[in-house]
Amino acid sequence: MGKIELKQVTKRFGDAEVIPPLDLTIHDGEFTVFVGPSGCGKSTLLRLIAGLEDITSGHIEIDGKDATTLVPAKRGLAMVFQSYALYPHMSVRKNIAFPLKMAKMDLAEIDRRVEGAASVLNLTAYLDRRPGQLSGGQRQRVAIGRAIVREPSAFLFDEPLSNLDAALRVGMRMEISELHKKLDTTMIYVTHDQVEAMTMADKIVVLQAGVIEQVGSPLELYRAPRNTFVAGFIGSPKMNLLTGPEADKHNAHTIGIRPEHIDVVQSDGVWQGTVGVAEHLGSDTFFHIHNTGLAETLTVRAIGDISLRHGDTIHLSPRMDEFHRFDKAGLRIA
């Protein structure tokens, strides 16, 4: 159980329309990621679903029942906040038990569930500590523990990993994915990081200024971005978007080619330019190339370590079948 439907939902703060009319269906058990640049309304959308913010117009249905005016506690959703929002004066045990205590559950059952959640999240040794005595990753797990003991019909995460360092982020990303596999509950996850979106999601919702740009699986978005915004947002490094004569050759206003779809060749490339910054990662090399006559910079990803340095001339050969074509309005041409 955990199907969430938004029907013509809008949200205004005063005069500012943050969410224009928006329709979205999130199916039961799906891991949905809202991704978009900062300030595009991801958090607002999540808070509308949670009930922490009133919607201006439209309807929200949870499991087929209208939940538009339901208070947050009655929606059966649990939220993990960016700041973790742990209760600093309570021990980890009390933090996790808090929603159950508020639901007036009997003490034996509370203990059973808290112990259960703690063992799933490796928190058993820390149950009697205060949040202030935990590391960032542990706090994050406590926040998740507080969410899972309620056995909600869906979890809402608002940028839960943005306060963690890079290594921990990768670890927690996997833990949350594991948790989703284990619980098989609907999860809505907000992030501005497209890598998180690509690695975790069953379904990605790309947002820009409150408007849904595209909904689809990670690979659908990667293979067939619906417009130039999605094309530039999904994938790392970013897709090269070219206009001008090169695009005209393909009968398009804009063409896009991903850095990994341009091969570095010894000579006789279709394009050539001078190497600007070269990022040598060992497994790959990212070249930022100038003076191609195509765009300010062109990004190219080559497999392995290629020993071209700053200022060298580089020959390039794009894979012709990997071009994405967009019209004047930025929409994909099939």
Binding site: L52, F81, S83, P99
Partner: peptide, 14 residues
């Protein structure tokens, strides 16, 4: 932190 109050609200606290 207002998120603490919101978390409590979601946790069903009156």
């Amino acid at each position: 932190d207002s998120e603490q109050l919101e978390a409590a609200e979601m946790d069903g606290a009156s």
